[in-house]
């Protein structure tokens, strides 16, 4: 314990603003998706697209508000790693859907 952080820590709030805002945002995004899904106002494609966007925002909230995403003791290799992971994940998902929606006889 090399610095004054520990002492000042005793007076830190139980719930800091940043984390609270993160939580609030995640709840709002969730319920927005729910409301949109139950409202039946838009077409399936449009609803799914908006909900996916909301989900991506949720991810950003988790990464920024909770996961200390930008922290590192050197070059931020982990960001490159996760970006690659996300890219390959999208390739697997959309690639598989594209490949597998041939005239399938099996249903």
């Amino acid at each position: 314990m090399t610095n004054g952080r520990m002492q000042e820590g005793k007076h830190a709030p139980l719930i800091p603003m940043k984390n609270f805002v993160g939580y609030l945002l995640s709840l709002v995004l969730t319920f927005a998706a729910l409301a949109l899904g139950m409202a039946h106002v838009l077409s399936f494609g449009a609803v799914m697209l908006i909900m996916l966007l909301l989900a991506v925002l949720q991810v950003v909230v988790q990464l920024i508000f909770f996961m200390h995403f930008t922290e590192s003791d050197g070059p931020r290799y982990h960001i490159v790693g996760l970006a690659l992971g996300a890219f390959f994940a999208l390739c697997v998902i959309f690639g598989s859907i594209w490949i597998m929606t041939f005239n399938s006889q099996v249903h």
């Binding site: 952080r5 820590g9 005793k10 830190a12 939580y23 995640s26 909770f66």
Partner: peptide, 14 residues
């Protein structure tokens, strides 16, 4: 997930 983040916050405050 929120409470988990609070745990790390408390930890960093010792």
């Amino acid at each position: 997930s929120f409470t988990g983040s609070l745990a790390v916050y408390a930890m960093r405050n010792g």
